[in-house]
Amino acid sequence: MSNLERDPVELVCPPEPSGAALIAVLQPREVPLGGPRAMNVRRTLPQRGRTTIGAWCFVDHYGPDEVATSGGMVVPPHPHTGLQTVSWLFEGEIEHHDSTGSAEFVRPGAVNLMTAGRGIAHSEVSTPDTSRLHGVQLWVALPDAARTVAPFFEHAETEPVEVDDAVVRVFAGSLPGIDAETSVTVFSPLVGAQIELPAGGEAWIELDPAFEHGLLVDRGPVTATIAALESEHDDASPDADPLAVAGHTSHLAQHELGYVAVGHEGVRIRAGGHESARVVLIGGVPFGEEIVMWWNFIGRTHDEIAEFRRAWQSDVIARGDADGRFGTVDGFDGDALPAPELPTVRLKPRA
Results as ranks from 00 to 15, higher is better:
Glu307Asp: 14
Gly220Lys: 01
His274Gly: 05
Leu216Trp: 11
Ala141Cys: 10
Ser87Ile: 01
Leu133Ile: 15
Ala311Thr: 04
Val67Ile: 05
Pro46Arg: 03
Asn112Cys: 00
Val262Gln: 12
Asp315Thr: 07
Asp315Cys: 03
Gly272Leu: 14
Gly82Leu: 01
Gly201Val: 01
Leu257Lys: 09
Glu30His: 07
Ser250Asp: 13
His122Met: 08
Pro286Ser: 02
Asp208Thr: 00
Pro15Asp: 08
Pro286Leu: 00
Ile298Tyr: 07
Ala55Asn: 02
His97Ala: 15
Glu256Cys: 05
Gly71Leu: 08
Pro143Leu: 00
Gly273Gln: 02
Ala199Thr: 05
His233Gly: 12
Pro160Cys: 04
Val41Gly: 11
Leu4Met: 14
His264Ala: 00
Thr81Leu: 09
Ser18Pro: 03
Val191His: 00
Arg48Ser: 07
Glu154Pro: 13
Pro79Gly: 04
Gly109Ser: 14
Gly72Arg: 08
Gly201Phe: 06
Pro36Ala: 02
Val25Ile: 15
Val222Cys: 10
Thr301Tyr: 08
His80Phe: 04
Thr115Asn: 12
Ser188Gly: 01
Phe308Tyr: 15
Arg118Ala: 07
Ser188Pro: 03
Phe297Trp: 07
Val74Asp: 11
Phe152Asn: 08
Asp144Gly: 14
Gly324Ser: 06
Cys13Met: 05
Glu157Gly: 03
Pro15Met: 05
Arg350Gly: 01
Ala38Ser: 15
Thr44Asp: 10
Glu230Ile: 01
Val59Gly: 04
Val217Ala: 14
Phe297Asp: 01
Ala246Arg: 08
Val316Pro: 14
Val12Ala: 03
Asp234Pro: 06
Thr44Trp: 07
Phe58Arg: 03
Pro32Leu: 04
Ala103Arg: 15
Gly63Cys: 02
Gly247Arg: 11
Ala228Thr: 02
Pro64Lys: 01
Pro8Gln: 03
Arg48Tyr: 04
Leu337His: 14
Arg268Thr: 10
Leu337Lys: 11
Phe171Glu: 14
Phe211Pro: 00
Asp164His: 13
Thr44Arg: 07
Thr69Pro: 00
Ala166Tyr: 10
Ala351Ile: 13
Ala55Gly: 06
Glu196Ala: 13
Pro79Leu: 12
Leu113Gly: 00
Asp330Thr: 02
Phe105Lys: 02
Leu11Trp: 08
His302Gln: 03
His255Thr: 15
His61Asn: 09
Ile23Tyr: 13
Glu66Gly: 01
Ser87Met: 04
Val111Tyr: 13
Leu142Tyr: 07
Asp218Gly: 15
Thr223Ser: 06
Val279Arg: 02
Glu341Ala: 15
Pro17Lys: 04
Val106Asn: 15
Arg50His: 08
Leu113Ile: 05
His302Ser: 06
Phe332Val: 12
Leu347Thr: 06
Gly35Pro: 12
Thr328Glu: 05
Ser126Lys: 09
Glu230Pro: 05
Gly72Lys: 08
Asp235Asn: 03
Gly92Gln: 12
Thr344Glu: 14
Lys348Arg: 15
His255Gly: 07
Ile269Phe: 12
Val106Phe: 10
Glu91Leu: 10
Pro221Ile: 10
